[in-house]
Nucleic acid binder design. Structure first.
Lengths: 134, 134
DNA sequence: CTTCCTGCAAAGAGTTTGCATCAAA
DNA sequence: TTTGATGCAAACTCTTTGCAGGAAG
């Protein structure tokens, strides 16, 4: 497997960076820095946690990665931008990505009301998942 | 001034709790625990930071307060639920609360597509504010 | 009075940083 | 060969916790 993402200019494409991006591409939901660490370890790749943090921060600044705090918890989670909107089950904690986020339709409305040029958004929705209802 | 909020049952209404709630009621935007601490101090009320954290956590659990991390920063912010949706200027960091969040209209859509019973949401929108555009 | 709450100080968790070494370009 | 990146360990910051004294009901 290899990354389909264009790597940001001005940075060296090290094997650590390639590996971190690949983990994020394969992740179904936002994951913590520690998750990245252990998933790499499973693949027999040992990268120090600080390198992971440093690169996640860089990737966030470059816009390739989104950082969020699921359910107000104290560990940051990271994901590619297409996984930044999600549902969380308040009962079991399951996370489900929202595809084609309906919020996109409101960019124009927000722009008119608040005068902001909208560049992005992130949405967290709480609820009870089908499994927990039954 | 006194709080208009009904205080959760089973807890003692101490002067510290009253004071913290009042700060949150008067806050325009989500603020940090430290912000609460210093605003209390300005009002000549000295409450320890740990008491503030303990009570903010309790208020979150009781649903009176919402915790969020603005712009992925590492300090938690707290606000009454009516201030949980906001715009952030990527240039100056200004926060503007979104009233009548348009996302409410999508509860039904999300329920049908994902099968969740939606109980709440929180939205963070990025953009450039009018002042920074000029 | 009883029980819960507070303040203080210390501990804990997650994240960041300094520095010597290593590897991408 | 040059300069940015990594790994390790130590440092830091925010947040949580234990405990003795204090106040709400």
């Amino acid at each position: 497997m290899s990354s389909k993402l264009k790597f940001p200019e001005g940075y060296r494409l090290t094997k650590q960076r390639k590996a971190i991006l690949e983990i994020l591409e394969n992740a179904e939901i936002p994951i913590t820095a520690e998750d990245v660490f252990f998933r790499l370890k499973e693949n027999k790749i040992n990268i120090s946690l600080s390198t992971i943090y440093r690169n996640l921060e860089m990737l966030c600044k470059e816009g390739l990665v989104i950082k969020s705090y699921v359910m107000g918890k104290d560990k940051a989670r990271f994901a590619l931008p297409d996984k930044k909107n999600y549902l969380i089950c308040e009962s079991c904690g399951k996370i489900v990505i929202i595809d084609n986020c309906p919020f996109d339709k409101f960019k124009e409305e927000l722009k008119q009301v608040y005068g902001f040029d909208i560049t992005g958004h992130s949405v967290e929705v709480y609820g009870i998942c089908p499994d927990c209802k039954s």
